[in-house]
Simulated scan of single mutants.
Amino acid sequence: MNTQDIPLIEAEDKDKVRLLRLGKAPAHPLSRAMIRALHDQIRQALADTRINVIVLEGPGHIYCAGHDLKEIGRHRADPDHGRAYLVELFTECSALMQDITLSPKPTIAMVDGIATAGGLQLAAACDLIFASSRASFCLPGVKNGGFCTTPAVAVSRSLSRKHMMEMALSGDTFDADWALSAGLVNRVFPSEQLSAATMEFAQQIASYHSTAIADGKRMLHDQLEMPLDRAYAEATEVMVGHFMDPVRIRAETNC
């Protein structure tokens, strides 16, 4: 198949789980077209009442290599040396990442290769990262004369400050064991078991009450920014709502 014919995103549904597979191997770069295609697929999955969980996969030895540097380079010939393009690119990318993180439906990154720069941002934006033992993680901006500033927004919400600084300041590549011990990933599996294990877990979550999970996810994010007393007060309201949900009442009264 000609590479031009490869879809940017492939979608596959199974047991209330939508698997979104990044195309354009081997690097799966976050070109502007890729960002827009993935954002469209995320929006479709969020609107689909048959889907309760979203899994993001970048198959092969590179999960996602981040922004398309060749595409960025082509805009250096613009009158403003690409500034307007960069502003639009990073704005669109940030909107995508926020929709993934704040999705009412759980999101899982399935990482079997290297997730680097914006590719690591994409994985870290998800609620969970399931990785293989051959996966690796990198924020290489400092080695290219820059700094992975926007990727760090997502990654820093998983790591301690010291771990975050180590990644961002060194630009080094870290293996799956380091990522697990640092709290960046949730579970590590042999490569040949990763897909089955991830999908099994995703289907387990997808079988739960989606309304309660959506409310609970929102509250988890919100309460972290609140004073303790307000966090408990608002969480109590959400918790009462869970117990008063008509679906739960029917299930418990029919036992």
Rank of each mutant, 00 (worst) to 15 (best):
D177G: 08
H67K: 10
T236W: 00
S103F: 05
G66Y: 08
S133W: 01
M110D: 12
A235T: 06
L46K: 00
G216Q: 02
L194I: 05
W178I: 02
L86G: 03
K105I: 11
K105M: 03
E166P: 02
D68G: 08
R18L: 11
E192W: 06
L184E: 02
A168H: 12
A25H: 08
R157L: 03
I129W: 01
L46V: 11
R50V: 14
A196H: 10
R76I: 00
R230C: 02
E237H: 10
Q4P: 10
F130N: 13
P59S: 07
L30A: 09
M199K: 14
Y208A: 15
L22Q: 05
L224Y: 11
G60M: 12
S136D: 03
A124H: 07
I62E: 13
P7F: 09
D78W: 09
G118E: 04
A251F: 12
F201P: 01
A231L: 07
E234D: 12
D175E: 00
R218N: 12
L19S: 15
M219F: 08
E234S: 12
W178M: 03
H242G: 09
R36T: 07
V185H: 09
F243C: 11
N186V: 01
R32E: 13
T91F: 07
L128P: 06
E92C: 15
I129Q: 10
R36V: 04
N254K: 13
S158T: 14
K16M: 05
M165S: 13
T3Q: 08
T101Y: 14
M199S: 03
A25F: 10
M164S: 13
R187A: 10
L224M: 08
H39R: 15
M34K: 03
G141R: 10
F137N: 07
P29G: 09
E237A: 13
M97Y: 08
L169R: 00
H81C: 10
D40I: 14
G119I: 08
L159M: 07
A206L: 03
C126H: 01
L86D: 05
T173V: 15
Q193C: 09
D222H: 15
P7N: 05
D177N: 12
